[in-house]
Design a protein around this nucleic acid. Structure first.
Lengths: 249, 249
DNA sequence: CGGACAGTTGATCCCGTTCAAGAAACGTGG
DNA sequence: CCACGTTTCTTGAACGGGATCAACTGTCCG
């Protein structure tokens, strides 16, 4: 658990990497009133079709966003780590079009839309940071379209694991030698447009070829460069180096 | 061609559907200095890896955004119609991670990043409208992930055609009885994660079953409700009704 | 100890790919 | 306006990656 005084710190640090903030911005962000909830794995944070009066920040844990097709199959469209503002949509759109579910036990800070809108009205640099964050989210969605549209099973899973590794590392939650990937093989299938059976066989193939090793859900990538090449992974789209961009002021 | 005095009008009208703007906002938007270019079909508007000092508004015509995988296959990740701000990314991120190409002969207004940033600094409502626009783009990307990840060939193409129909209509460019879809079957394949051969057969199948009729690249959808059902198309994700959202002020 | 869920493996099938070649449409220059 | 090269569309045949169906194993937890 996180020190209650700094519960939004991960989020603040993330926004600082999006645009230059001054002390008043930081203070305002940290001072946002919130309602902290602990959510067990599987619990819904946002439901499709609802019109929430609040947004949610993932304080700890992992979450995923998914949609269900008319025929009932599920597609996971993004995965979120602690510090992510998981649904700015909730405060800015009239109706949300996807579900967000806790992947692991998580702490979620709920922030009323009115507080959030007031904040961005008073602090244009924060608004800018959030906007850039939204743009980067879009960039990641585009890469996911490429992943499910134009890569085969092995590449898709390798790519997902590369992305996960880099994002965890960037969020200060990863170690170079490996990480916990707390997803079932069915969830991995839903994220990559495959079936759980084929995920199983493909992971086995990657392990047999020494590209990954796994015990339980802990993934090790012994040769990052080889893995990167298999996945066709180019991390530009994560925009991890983004700092304020062309923004003057 | 468009009346030069109102060349950005489509864009202004679109942003007005995203947030409430006042007269000074509209005036400022219309007064943005731009450099108008006519681009032949196939011409690159934005190139992956570049760091442009301007953004682009599609004044007339159609454009598409795509990425190339390490193995050289192409995935189209979005299609844009006149009035779309096709690369806000260019002004807000350090490096762009995708290509944008004219689909048809198009007019593009290039706007310097400095002008754009000055505009949003002075006009928070415009910033809000653009931010919401970015959020809606993200929503469309997510639906594309679902489309290529969890629908079969017939559903994918039907879905793409439904989306196109509704977006053209919303942009005031569509007629209820059909529309011009100026994409080659190879491009349709790149947008849906299929090969052009299979696109050809699938379109034939849709036509044989009376779901669409086509002459050249003009598509007619005789029974919209049936088509919608086949595609599993639910237009919520386009957020066409979005007007200001929870925004007060 | 038993029940539920996740992971593993085998056998078979099928949707979409690949390769190939011909037909139609289009633009361009004479 | 026609000849010709190029791009796009169309169709056939064979192949294969991943799906489907099904059963079994392992693991966690009450």
């Amino acid at each position: 658990m996180v020190d209650p005084r700094n519960i939004l710190d991960r989020m603040v640090r993330k926004f600082e990497r999006r645009a230059h903030l001054d002390d008043s911005d930081r203070k305002a962000l940290r001072g946002l009133p919130y309602d902290l909830k602990v959510m067990e794995a599987g619990r819904y944070i946002v439901r499709e079709g609802s019109s929430p009066d609040h947004s949610a920040v993932l304080v700890s844990g992992l979450a995923y966003r998914h949609k269900i097709t008319a025929e009932g199959s599920r597609q996971i469209v993004s995965i979120h780590v602690a510090g992510d503002f998981v649904d700015l949509e909730g405060s800015l759109l009239n109706v949300v079009d996807h579900n967000i579910q806790a992947l692991t036990r998580s702490e979620v800070a709920l922030i009323r839309s009115t507080s959030l809108l007031e904040l961005v009205n008073k602090h244009p640099r924060i608004a800018r940071a959030m906007w850039i964050d939204t743009i980067i989210d879009g960039s990641i969605f585009r890469e996911w379209v490429v992943n499910v549209g134009r890569r085969d099973a092995r590449e898709r899973l390798a790519h997902l694991m590369c992305e996960f590794a880099r994002r965890l590392e960037a969020a200060g939650m990863g170690s170079p030698d490996g990480y916990e990937l707390p997803m079932t093989q069915e969830q991995l299938g839903d994220a990559t447009g495959l079936t759980s059976v084929h995920v199983n066989r493909t992971l086995k193939g990657l392990a047999d070829d020494g590209l990954i090793s796994r015990e339980r859900r802990f993934i090790r990538i012994p040769d990052w460069e080889k893995m990167r090449a298999i996945a066709g992974f180019n991390e530009t789209y994560l925009h991890l180096d983004q700092v304020g961009g062309a923004s003057p002021r």
